[in-house]
Amino acid sequence: MKGFDKRVESYADALAGLSDGMTVLAGGFGLCGIPENLIEQIRVMGVKGLTVVSNNCGVDDFGLGVLLKDRQIRKMVASYVGENAEFERQLMSGELEVELTPQGTLAEKMRAGGAGIPAFFTATGYGTPVGEGKEVREFNGRPHILEHAITGDFAIVKGWKADRYGNVIYRHTAQNFNPCVAAAGRITVVEVEKIVEPGELEPSQIHTPGIYVDRLIVGSFEKRIEKRTVRTAA
């Protein structure tokens, strides 16, 4: 009996059903807390025409950037897309569509999507190019714009520890967008560093409850650092 056991055997199983033209939500901030093996599996599968929603798009040879080479991404929804030469090339040539979205609005769009709220008003972006063409309403004397929720066919998430029930804990700032993404996927796939025995995770400390998680796999991670900054001992 499988019941609540969310574990799958392989990365192929983890992303089974992902096909051309789907929308994929991906957790991570820069290269921190990205589902690096699930991204690699998407590259291996070769699915094309994807809409990818993620705060950033990786770098040329790591993270979501690896999906650009074979033109697997048709449209990117993100708040910041620097640090990636191939991305810039495809953007300038018009091969890639980009919808730049304020970071907090992007997080809230996915939070709302996962919470069954179809749209919300926010002051963020009013009077800017982001607000163009969007419905405006005044609340408390201040104009707000209507922003629509985002959900995905697949959500790909990087956690730290999970139990087989799919309860997930994130580590440090590798949390970032991951809980928002996890709740907004029709099929949510989580890869973690460690799967622990049921009961080991303190229920009140769970970041993403297992109800949001459909598939769970344990992987090993490179965890590349984008900007290595240190201090020297005084």
Binding site: M110, T173, A174, N176, N178, P179
Partner: peptide, 27 residues
């Protein structure tokens, strides 16, 4: 620690009294 960065993607530390949360909570 690769899991401990700031919004400029630089490696940082957390001070005493710090808290860490999701992007939705942050905004």
């Amino acid at each position: 620690d690769a899991d401990m960065i700031n919004a400029g993607k630089q490696t940082v530390t957390a001070r005493a009294g710090a808290s860490i949360f999701s992007s939705a909570e942050s905004f």
